[in-house]
Simulated scan of single mutants.
Amino acid sequence: MKAWGPILATTDFSGPARHAADRAARLAHETGSPLTLMHVMPGEALAELRQWLGSGHATEGRLVEDNRQQLQQLAERLRTQHHITVQVVESSGSVLDEIRQQAEALDASLLVLGARGAGFLRRLVLGSTSERLLRRTSRPVLVVRQTPHEPYRRVLLALDFSPWSVQAVSVALRVAPHARFVLLNAFQVPFEDKLRYAGVDTATIDHYRVQARAEAVQRVNELAAQTGLKPGQWEACVIEGDASQRIVEQEQERDCDLVVLGKHGQSATEDLLLGSVTKHVLAEGSTDVLVSTARAV
């Protein structure tokens, strides 16, 4: 496989963060990409510690040294198990800013972090910090929640046919080149409730539903051809309903081990796949989530 760009994995040494580091190492081995393992000591926590104990207290030095040893030990394990080169980076300050700056310095092709961390990584994934990171970065973000035992084998690609969809497929092919892809589009009849309220008969609404499904199937096939997916490499899943609910349902029903989302929906005001859908999939789903943050031009 052709080498990809650098991979940046962040860790706080929690169990989920170790899963993320293992997945990042596997991807580095599979793609021939350099891996950087990063730990950030949160600036707010350090400031609070200094307020209580005073600047330069021995406890701070012991914490820094303990983190350094854990980082080195984790890096050495990844080197040995996955036969890769791992660079380590230690920093302190604003976690979001430090990660973004390091990603820029490396020109990272992928950011990897755990779905449930201890402290800052938990807030990073589940809180407003993750949204700010995704809004500001043009780099794909992989949120790991499973223990990685093998390469990704079955990937659910959530498509809304926005400019982000093509790039989402491209990134997914990099992360899971040998997987079977499920191309999912959740369609709805526009303004169905209002149509019913306005007295539009059921037969007419059902006609619209058939049209919406047929159009979605056509667009899924066109996108598969556009992105170079081969017959036998993918299957279509065109289903009616709310996107966030259908993604989680199909992820589980089809035994997928990765869900791929584009950054935005059809318009900047919707923020469809960055906002409510991503939050729902992270909260209710059971598999890893890859958010592609670039759009086709």
Rank of each mutant, 00 (worst) to 15 (best):
A236H: 02
R209K: 14
T147C: 02
G199Y: 11
D12M: 07
L124Q: 07
G228Q: 06
A118L: 15
A212E: 15
A176D: 03
A103G: 15
E76K: 11
S109Y: 08
T227H: 10
T147H: 11
R62L: 11
D255C: 13
P16E: 14
A294M: 04
A216E: 01
A115Q: 00
R213F: 01
M41Y: 15
Q233P: 06
R68I: 04
D66P: 01
S244A: 10
S92M: 13
T31L: 14
G241V: 06
V86F: 04
M38V: 02
T10M: 15
S91L: 11
G241T: 05
L27T: 05
R122L: 13
L37N: 01
F13L: 07
V189G: 13
R132W: 00
A20T: 02
Q73C: 12
V89L: 07
D160A: 11
V155E: 08
L195P: 11
R219F: 01
A186P: 06
V259L: 09
A58F: 11
I84K: 01
Q167K: 12
A115W: 03
A268P: 01
L184N: 07
S138G: 13
E270S: 04
G241Y: 01
W234K: 06
T10R: 08
L96C: 00
E60I: 09
V64G: 02
R79F: 12
S14L: 06
L195I: 10
G127S: 10
R174F: 03
D107F: 06
L184V: 03
G15C: 05
V125G: 04
R26N: 07
R77N: 15
A283F: 03
L223Y: 12
V259R: 00
D206C: 04
E251W: 02
G232V: 12
L157N: 06
R122D: 15
Q226E: 15
Q73R: 12
T227N: 08
D97T: 09
S162K: 10
V182A: 05
G127K: 00
R18W: 03
A118T: 14
V95R: 02
R136K: 07
E48A: 13
L35P: 07
A186M: 04
A243P: 05
P42K: 10
R136W: 02
S162Q: 03
Q101W: 10
R196Y: 05
S170M: 10
A105F: 12
R180D: 02
P231W: 14
V200C: 10
G114F: 07
F161E: 11
G56S: 00
D257Q: 07
L53D: 05
V95G: 03
T287C: 13
G61A: 11
L96R: 05
E104C: 06
R174L: 11
E65P: 05
L27K: 03
H39I: 09
T137D: 04
V144G: 09
